[in-house]
Design a binder for these strands. Sequence first.
RNA 1: GGUCCCAUCGUCUAGUGGUUAGGACGCCGGCCUCUCACGCCGGAAACCGGAGUUCAAAUCUCCGUGGGACUACCA
Length: 487
Amino acid sequence: MGNGHDMAARRKRVRVRFAPSPTGDLHVGNARTALFNWLFARREGGDFILRIEDTDASRTDRVYEANIVEDLRWLGLTWDEGPDVGGDFGPYRQSGRLALYGEHLERLIAKGSVYPCYCSDEELEAERLAQVARREPPRYSGRCRLLSAGERARREGEGRRPAWRFAVPPGTVSFRDVIRGNVTFEGRDLGDFIVVRSNGIPAYNFACVVDDHLMGMTHVIRGEDHLSNTALQLLLYRSFGWQPPRFAHHALILGKDRAKFGKRHGSVSVREFRERGILPEALVNYLALLGASLGGGREVAGIDGILASFSLNRAGKSGAVFDEEKLAWLNAHHLRLLDPEGLRSRLDPFIRKAGYGGEEEGRLQAVIAAVRDNLTDLWQIGDYLVMFDDGRFRLDEEAAAVLGREGSREVVAALGEAVDRHGASFGAVMAYVEEKTSRRGRDLFLPVRAALTGRVRGPELERVFDVLGPESVKKRVAKVLGGVART
RNA sequence: GGUCCCAUCGUCUAGUGGUUAGGACGCCGGCCUCUCACGCCGGAAACCGGAGUUCAAAUCUCCGUGGGACUACCA
């Protein structure tokens, strides 16, 4: 007995990684991949590694790397090893591993797995065009594979610097994907791919395999868009004689038109959602929910709840459309779960952005308490701050229309009188106005709301009244009445 | 075009041979003696098509159809 336990104990410690290329801000799709890896590592008691794939110097920017790191931290996806925290398998930036790739290229050359290709971009392009014209699949013909030593020497003599291509062998490449089951590719459909570019920089698939192996990855969890890359990478593992990791390819996030979720679909980066006032826990919750389910019909969950029910098997195989409205709903939910201090600190950057925060803390908290149930994102606090600011408060179109209606001025005038008599008691004030104007319900409340807040929607009137206080109420009444009721 | 992957309400999903096909977002109606938000109640809304296997198919098989990804000296 105890076999299962022994097996588990003997099993290698799980190691997974998130390997972004710093060519832009963190895309929510990539954030979701990072989340899956993080969850998997935490679930299995393994390590989560951050590796920066910055081999293409022309597209890479250190600023993006810093942003990605910041956004991942903001989401709460911390890593055990990475460029900033170190670890035993570094360097964690591919730009610092060039010597390693060089050594490994030598090994492939020695094994005869790769060959130098002297074709220029123009030649390659012409070949592709010809293939397309002949209605053939555009694939590298492999012509440099047959070059004799003499022909190679002649090209070298012309000063041509070769790129190294992998000589894809005939036969099939297949693997068992954790999410998709068996996947098979035919070698002849693959085409000899570039391993090291003519400028000496390793190409993605090669660098990725060398790093994943050297860094001891046990699982590679990534988007479905890498499915065909996996076939190429497996060929590399085979050549090196390495045991490949387990692969799991999750489905992609789609836009409304069901195409890969991209810029034309609106906000796509973590940063954009953050700046719009989305809570990290809401985004994480949504990303975990998208294309999957938490089980038991549960949808709202914090990171612990997500962790408890996470399983790669629960990830769907088909692409999932990103639904901003559901994200907004989740955000409103998580907003309400925050305690007052938590909400206050999350709100802080948005309060400052709106130009507030310097005033009395008590008043600020009163405003927050009054509007918190109406908030669906953090950004909206700015509008409410303006609404409660006597100096900046304005009537919007709908409010002006309400106040222009028959009988509205009468209500507002009565409100002014009521405040003079009953001061801070909302109940007494409204009772007076109701008696005086014999209006009730909407006809009574809406003009009051419009006069006091400048809008026709907002927090409960009593709370607005309390935060405003008699002085502000009178100022607003006077403003609406055009200075008539000034005292 | 080629290769690979996928297919339940508009959207995200539950469902692993027998269910009135469930839930969530959104939408519509109602309630909560103002609005919005929240909450609650109710409603409309789906198994891509065709064969086959089976007593029985959303579930298994095949063929269509549709959608997506990949198809760079980007990652």
